[in-house]
Nucleic acid binder design. Structure first.
Ligand code: FES
Ligand code: FES
Lengths: 135, 135
DNA sequence: TAAATTCCTTGTGATATAATAGGAAATGAA
DNA sequence: TTCATTTCCTATTATATCACAAGGAATTTA
């Protein structure tokens, strides 16, 4: 599995924030209820989104999160890469731990595969998902 | 990570068998030494390849494994799917455990992504890797 | 008969996933 | 000012998967 719940829930959070962008700050409690996802887990995930500047937060009563950009300015690729850490389909492509990388018959395959995945996920935005414009 | 060592080692085994196809049955010991991979782990992986008919085996002295088809008749997709169980980039696409699948904004995205990955991996064969014909 | 090999079941440590627990700090509303 | 709400932060836990290793039975050729 390349994309775990971290990436999927991150997308769910940002989609929910997009759909309620006119309501000011949205609390995780509401997102948790609407998306039926565990709030404590969402906390950890939204923390990464917040630190990277994808969302901004307000503490306290009536607090919550909101988008910092327009939905069309978030690529799915940037979201998944942030939440998951990487979209590499094999470990050879991330932590440079594969010793025989210099003379490996399969490395070009993995590189092209990752390029393919990256190009597609970078070509789709939150807005596309909201408008269901997938093929 | 979509493709673990299971899939990568399965590829390594079949590539090694391809490169030594003229030497009759090849033992895991030799493959293990050449590819520098743990033999006991290879045993488990080759067992799946054997049961599916991708390779055939001979027990006893001078025994080992050999390909049942020509390298150009093995797609990378078929190998990875067999060794890994699936190439689905998200769990929603395999065990039908995602309750909100019927009204999910992201499901079409995952389906198209899997289609993309599958199409590419099915378009490449062992022969292509041996001849380094990747882009 | 002996050495080599596949084949089969079982176990195991490490790591990643998917959370949960508990509370400190901040904020707006009453 | 007080209080309910919410983010924020640091653990802890439970489960599953990964990546093997162990031991031995069955098979085959030299
Ligand atoms: S570089 Fe990792 S298997 Fe080739
Ligand atoms: S179907 Fe699984 S997240 Fe949408």
């Amino acid at each position: 599995m390349m994309i775990s719940t971290k990436g999927r829930y991150a997308l769910n959070i940002l989609l929910d924030l997009s759909q309620h962008a006119d309501e000011g700050y949205i609390s995780l409690k509401k997102i948790s209820q609407r998306q039926k996802l565990p709030i404590k887990y969402l906390e950890a995930i939204v923390s990464v989104l917040n630190k990277s500047g994808m969302v901004e937060s307000l503490r306290g009563k009536e607090g919550g999160y909101r988008l910092t950009k327009k939905p069309e300015d978030y690529t799915i690729g940037s979201i998944i890469k942030l939440a998951e850490g990487s979209i590499a389909p094999v470990s050879c492509l991330e932590s440079e731990n594969c010793a025989q990388a210099c003379h490996c018959l399969t490395l070009p395959l993995w590189m092209k595969l990752e390029g393919l995945i990256d190009a597609y996920l970078e070509s789709v935005t939150l807005k596309d998902l909201l408008e269901q414009k997938i093929s």
